[in-house]
């Protein structure tokens, strides 16, 4: 179980990364490596080159910019979790991050790496989707910002073009009058979610996002429903997600979790409207 051969490119600037992605066929960005490395060792992924971006200082920043927390591509999950303002500025992100892997993998894994990988069960893409965040991608051709709903296009596939890198992700900060809640269930602690729920609510608005069921995180606006309608709406939502059977759970079980956990998450979010 050893990787196939590849060149190792240590980028010293964002320009280095852009040039490498545009010039080298089948190159892959290596950030924290917590997902890419097992794929390399299992030879599921066989890039010609890996581009290590972790020494680029400009990518290592967490900053609040225009109502959003901008997290650079080299920011490790543990660093964001330890960011003192996190809980105050975005409680949903603070609630979801401890569910990402284990402490030992969060110490290396990056926030943007999780977005780039777009695992349908992953927490960070779910939070981006729930909050209507965005992903900042760039290449020699220029930079653009893609809304989360447009960015995650399917199983492990995103709107990032082959020559583009993710420079940062943007999590909108907490809105006054809003409540946030996150719940997840997996077989073991630290496992991929069978179902994960993120809710963003205000007195007039209900937004529920579900991970682990469809081929990507999916959010639905459930505003304007009374309690009885809400249960029906979540059931409709659950069925729309095209749940699958796999080794760990049946489709029917996943829908059950969406219904039960979904409504609980919305309740919990309502309880903490600020």
């Amino acid at each position: 179980m050893k990787p196939a051969q590849f060149d190792y490119l240590r980028a010293e600037s964002i320009g280095d990364v852009h040039r490498a992605l545009s010039e080298v066929k089948d190159a892959r960005v290596l950030a924290g490596g917590q997902t890419l490395m097992p794929m390399l060792s299992m030879r599921l992924a066989r890039p010609s080159s890996v581009i290590d971006i972790m020494r680029i200082e400009a990518l290592g920043r967490i900053e609040e910019k225009g109502n959003a927390i901008r997290v650079g591509a080299a920011v490790r999950q543990a660093k964001l979790l330890a960011w003192p303002a996190l809980k105050d500025r975005q409680p949903l992100l603070a609630a979801a991050l401890p569910w990402v892997g284990h402490a030992q993998t969060r110490n290396r894994g990056t926030v943007c790496g999780s977005a780039a990988h777009a695992d349908p069960s992953a927490e960070i893409p779910l939070v981006l989707t729930a909050l209507e965040g965005s992903v900042e991608v760039s290449s020699l051709r220029g930079a653009r910002k893609v809304a989360a709903a447009e960015f995650f296009t399917g199983l492990m596939t995103t709107a990032r073009a082959d020559d583009e890198m993710i420079e940062a992700v943007h999590f909108p900060v907490r809105q006054p009058g809003h409540g946030y809640a996150f719940n997840e269930y997996g077989r073991r602690h630290g496992d991929f979610a069978l179902v994960a729920c993120a809710a963003v609510v205000s007195r007039t608005r209900v937004r529920l996002a579900i991970g682990g069921v469809s081929d990507r995180p999916v959010a639905r606006d459930l505003s304007g429903t009374n309690d009885e309608e809400l249960a029906q709406a979540i059931n409709d939502f659950a069925w729309s997600l095209e749940a699958r059977d796999d080794l760990h759970a049946t489709a029917s079980y996943r829908r059950q979790l969406v219904r039960e956990m979904g409504i609980r998450t919305i309740r919990e979010a309502r309880a903490c409207i600020s």
Binding site: P120, S121, G154, L155, M156, T157, D215, R244, D246, L247
Partner: peptide, 10 residues
């Protein structure tokens, strides 16, 4: 296996 079915459908 967790990802396989969705991948095949893609």
């Amino acid at each position: 296996g967790r990802l396989l079915d969705a991948a095949a459908r893609v």
